[in-house]
Nucleic acid binder design. Sequence first.
DNA 1: CTCTCAAACTAACAAATGTTTGTTGTTGCT
DNA 2: AGCAACAACAAACATTTGTTAGTTTGAGAG
Lengths: 192, 192
Amino acid sequence: MNKKLNKRQIILDEAAKLFKLKGFGGTSMRDLAGEVGMEAASMYNHIKSKDEILEHLCFHVSNTYIAQLAEVEQMPGSNGDKLKELLRRHINLMLEDGAAVSVANNDWKYLTDSKLLQFKEARKQYEKGFAALIENGIAAGEFRPVNASVALFTILSAVRWVELWYRPGRGVTAQELEEDIMAILLNGLAKN
Amino acid sequence: MNKKLNKRQIILDEAAKLFKLKGFGGTSMRDLAGEVGMEAASMYNHIKSKDEILEHLCFHVSNTYIAQLAEVEQMPGSNGDKLKELLRRHINLMLEDGAAVSVANNDWKYLTDSKLLQFKEARKQYEKGFAALIENGIAAGEFRPVNASVALFTILSAVRWVELWYRPGRGVTAQELEEDIMAILLNGLAKN
DNA sequence: CTCTCAAACTAACAAATGTTTGTTGTTGCT
DNA sequence: AGCAACAACAAACATTTGTTAGTTTGAGAG
């Protein structure tokens, strides 16, 4: 009974890796089946369609992000503290589930119709919550009075390279990574 | 005689827009032909293949970046000045040629064989030069002693949202944009 | 042993893909 | 007018695509 869920999970995991590597359009069901170790047709015993795979991966990520936002919003502390914690969790998901995050970042545009709308909406919700932290921080005098949207996208984009670049054991630990990124974004690169 | 170059340019420009919007794999030659205003087969009077289009777009961008690096390297001034100038030009190309930059950022992985290698090499060269500026700046005491690679990718990624987000007349001018981004990256978001 | 049922396979499908072929205007030069 | 080069077209191509149908396999339950 959980054998089925297991095989399904293997397919989803392998799909995330392949989509990250070769893109959604560049990955055929036969490619994926080869990686999983069965024929393409056999996978349809476990998944509904190629689109369903993409949807699962994208919404797994967006749901996690939104849940993290909700948690952080209800924490005590300054806006700076909250922003830092949200960013920390944001980076963490990339480190733990890099392939899925990569797919959600790059291949979401291949979602169809209502699912595409739904995903865009979810992303917008996350960005709105993120921006609110920045705006509140500016209003409270914690942050520089920059354009909040510019700051938001600068920060969110800044951390995107993590999923492209980071591999465990590359001389930089996850902690160092988080610290350096947050140091640059919050305190800047210039010494003064 | 320049009619041919003209049509070819139209195809390349339209391809950049479509690839940005729907991805390389998600754009068929018939889609593109429809946008250009001819049949798919007719385009082969102006271009060699779909791959050639992708190659042109990708290398146009990478060549420009590398040329800008070479120019800035030979300028006088501190490492901070050079970094600032290179970043300014980097952002500028995104503002002026956003679609092509988008393709080079997202669809380069569909390049084939030697072209793929070549592109990766070009990117590495650009990153190396960029990183050298940061390292020299740290050595000279101009910058915080962070990991140069982390700083490099944080900065390069941070500006990537520009091509995804920026549209002229969205309330933020190109100047404000550049200033705010550079302020955050160089001086940080936190007030102190 | 036999029945069952999920999960794998082979084979085939229709649709879409990038590209080639052969042909037909159309333009400009002599 | 006549030739040459170009640029558009329709039709077809071989392949690849995602997916379905029908069949076989194999393990567990009675």
